[in-house]
């Protein structure tokens, strides 16, 4: 009585799974949680320094922004916050559009608008942070009105 033998499964050139979906939505889900955890620290820190410390919201003017962006620390902080918050927010709005906009065309148009706003805002904000001049001068070589006091001293 010979032992029964089983053929090896025919696996190789054939895909047994019919699913060819990408993991895009899983990575999107994961990104929301990871970026959210970082944003909690970045945004609450941002609010605390700008609204609670010093003169609070009354102290906000060009000089306040110039004083912060004179330091690479706050440049990197705000750059990270800009990118993460914009991608996190756009992805959240994308989810909301997918949930409530029923017509294909409505979804395409709304999501295109979100993408345009995302690219425009991130590019603009990044350029502003990197090309910021705390002590801008006019064509005559004199400081513009409203520059912070540390420019002239």
């Amino acid at each position: 009585m010979a032992a029964p033998s089983l053929e090896a499964p025919r696996s190789t050139p054939y895909r047994r799974s019919t699913s060819r979906r990408s993991n895009y939505e899983m990575y999107s889900w994961l990104f929301m949680r990871l970026s959210g955890a970082v944003l909690v620290v970045l945004v609450i820190g941002h609010l605390f320094v700008n609204l609670m410390v010093g003169d609070g919201i009354s102290g906000l003017d060009f000089g306040f922004v110039a004083g912060k962006w004179a330091s690479p620390f706050w440049q990197v902080w705000d750059l990270a916050m800009l990118w993460l918050a914009m991608i996190h927010g756009s992805n959240g709005v994308r989810t909301i559009i997918n949930d409530y906009a029923q017509r294909d065309m409505t979804r395409i148009v709304l999501k295109t608008l979100v993408l345009v706003a995302l690219v425009f805002t991130v590019v603009l904000g990044t350029l502003v942070i990197f090309t910021f001049e705390p002590c801008p001068v006019g064509p005559d070589g004199a400081f513009l009105e409203g520059v912070p006091s540390f420019c002239t001293s």
Binding site: D61, F62, G63, V65, A66, L82, A85, M86, G89, S90, G92, V93, I96, A117, T121, L124, G125, L127, V128, T131, F132, E133, P136, L144, E145, G146, V147
Partner: peptide, 26 residues
């Protein structure tokens, strides 16, 4: 989330005025 996203767009736009002129931002 939606409210914060809309504010964020305006917030980046008005903060960008620091690149135009100190007086424009102020």
């Amino acid at each position: 989330g939606l409210l914060i996203f809309v504010f964020l767009l305006v917030h980046v736009l008005d903060t960008s005025l620091v690149r135009v002129a100190p007086e424009a931002y102020n």
